[in-house]
Nucleic acid binder design. Structure first.
Lengths: 340, 340
DNA sequence: CTGAAAGCGCTTACAG
DNA sequence: CTGAAAGCGCTTACAG
């Protein structure tokens, strides 16, 4: 590796000052056009690499934005991240991604690392049980935070997520409309705001239809295909014999469909299954999955936009921004057919 | 946000020098134990945040490692990334992730950004058509690069990936052993080293069994479920009526199984399908997928390990490290059954 | 065991 | 339109 090229290398080689070179490379109108071109050519010729650490130490702006979610391998978050990425790319921000796997400690480490790197802001889907202090650590050190997908009680931070209560009630009503009366709710946890909201939406819809809510029909579990797949055994051995399942998300729904298929039932005919999120995968599942569009791309885009605006100095009001979910009816649900 | 706390704030408040504070916080034995504890307590009390930009400007070590792959949402890369993450976590390195979506320009931007941030090293799965200069840009500026999943001609960089030629021949031989003679190869491209190697493995296996290679049976396409799903139409309308498909990867295989199911064929009985990678999902697909274990976790772990060793000053030999794939036989393949 | 001082590579008033 | 100088917050020889 050759001698390190820096501003002063360029300046010396052209008989100029580092101030002029610095301004020229950032297209300042203070520098004469001719000088600017000469400087840029020289920078290119020498293979100059801008040192952002040095610049950011001076300006206290790093161009780094952190994003931390439960699991980037989960396509639900993947679709949000893709939207964030394309929005941030446009303003040439670097984004640092991390999973917290619902470990409060991992999340805190990430926030601290980001602060150490001088991160300009953070977009996060808070880990289960996050202490408000950990999130406020960012804000208190001048690094604004935006929440996605999950909210946190008692924090007045901008939050972007789907309206879960409403969304799940859409799915539940759809099944009730098809004649189903014994409807299980499969997957997920009640430890997040999302979880409580979804269960509430399910309960609301049943009550409104005059159907008694049986807590035995709530089968919690991992929010993954594997989770849904394994839940099939419990689902099929419930004494009340449910004819339909409202699943936590598309992954659980696809897993559950695989599980009940193995046991000889045909999803969509023998047992109706709804998903949640409308992942790209939902429409190519077999049978194609009836689900609830949850606006992942919208959530990501709006959250990124809000952060960029905040960094640009706008003073938008904080608070909750709910995306309105929509029903997507496909082949995994159908009229009731009693099991026996 | 309160007054920024820095080393000198702590030093002044205790009547010490910044040198002593700096050494104490990094557990230098040069500082008396008592002084060290006093300093650490004070740092905590004041809410001190270490400024890595300043430190790294001075030491020219950033603790940042970049990872860039085609698409982090693809579970194949996801499984590699998970392994890299857990290996890097252990040595408290921050890792910056990016997709290049096979855009050479995006990849180059990423490498430049990483250099600007003072990245210590980069792990990459090179974009299709990457010019060697772009990768050497990293090396030439003192940022070592490790290649994963794909190799590049004419670059003597450490490379970790599966043995694709051998792996695909395992899958092809398995199908031949079940009596299949008309075997399509579905999905993927021949523009990557991986692609050429896989096609070669397929061709080799057919030739060795005395089966003529028909180029019409090669159906290239996106390496996604959607790609496999859409390929089903082509697959089913081939004049030679293949009874089996060797798929590029598990995603394509699952998509293809969904596609042929829609057309009324039962995968595993009417049409045999093999995947590649052995993703977590393969075993819960319906039918469960016969596939080739491709050692993603191994690739990630070894690549991260190699980079860390290199940064620690070891001079390991560069070059190719091939992981030996293994067959995983499940329900999606079976004895030939002629279509008519 | 602790301190004074230089320097990492930028940017930004300020002067001219 | 260009330059001299200070300073961002650390770490590292070097002295004592």
């Amino acid at each position: 590796m050759a001698q390190k090229i820096k501003l002063s290398t360029i300046a010396d080689s052209l008989g100029l000052s580092t101030a002029t070179v610095s301004l020229a490379l950032r297209d300042s109108p203070l520098v004469a056009a001719e000088t600017r071109e000469k400087i840029k050519d020289q920078a290119r010729a020498l293979g100059y690499i801008y040192n952002r650490r040095a610049a950011s130490l001076r300006t206290s702006r790093s161009g780094i934005i952190g994003v931390v979610v439960h699991d980037i391998m989960n396509p639900f978050y993947g679709e949000i991240l893709k939207a964030i990425e394309s929005e941030l790319d446009r303003s040439r921000q670097t984004f640092i991604l991390s999973n917290h796997y619902d470990s409060v400690e991992k999340q805190r480490n990430f926030i601290e690392t980001l602060l150490q790197l001088g991160g300009d802001g953070v977009i996060m889907s808070p880990a289960i049980g996050s202490p408000p202090e950990d999130v406020m650590l960012a804000e208190d050190n001048g690094m604004p935070a935006i929440l996605i997908a999950r909210s946190m009680e008692g924090l007045a931070l901008p939050t972007y997520r789907g309206d879960d209560t409403y969304g799940i009630s859409l799915a539940t009503n759809h099944l009730i409309g098809l004649g189903h009366r014994v409807i299980a709710m499969v997957g997920g946890t009640d430890q997040t705001s999302t979880g409580r909201d979804r269960y509430q939406g399910y309960v609301n819809a049943l009550r409104k239809a005059g159907i008694e809510v049986d807590p035995e029909l709530r089968i919690p579990g991992p929010r993954t295909k594997q989770g849904g797949f394994e839940a099939a055994v419990n689902f099929l051995s419930l004494p009340q014999k449910p004819t339909a399942a409202v699943c936590w998300n598309d992954l659980v729904a696809i897993g559950l469909m695989n599980g009940v298929s193995r046991a000889g039932f045909v999803p969509g005919r023998d047992i109706s299954v709804t998903g949640y999120d409308d992942l790209e995968e939902a429409s190519i599942a077999t049978p194609s999955l009836t689900t609830v569009w949850n606006g992942q791309a919208e959530v990501g885009r709006l959250a990124a936009r809000a952060l960029l605006d905040k960094l640009a100095g706008s003073h938008e009001p904080d608070g909750m921004h709910l995306i309105k979910p929509e029903m997507r009816i496909r082949q995994s649900t159908g009229p009731i057919k009693h099991r026996d």
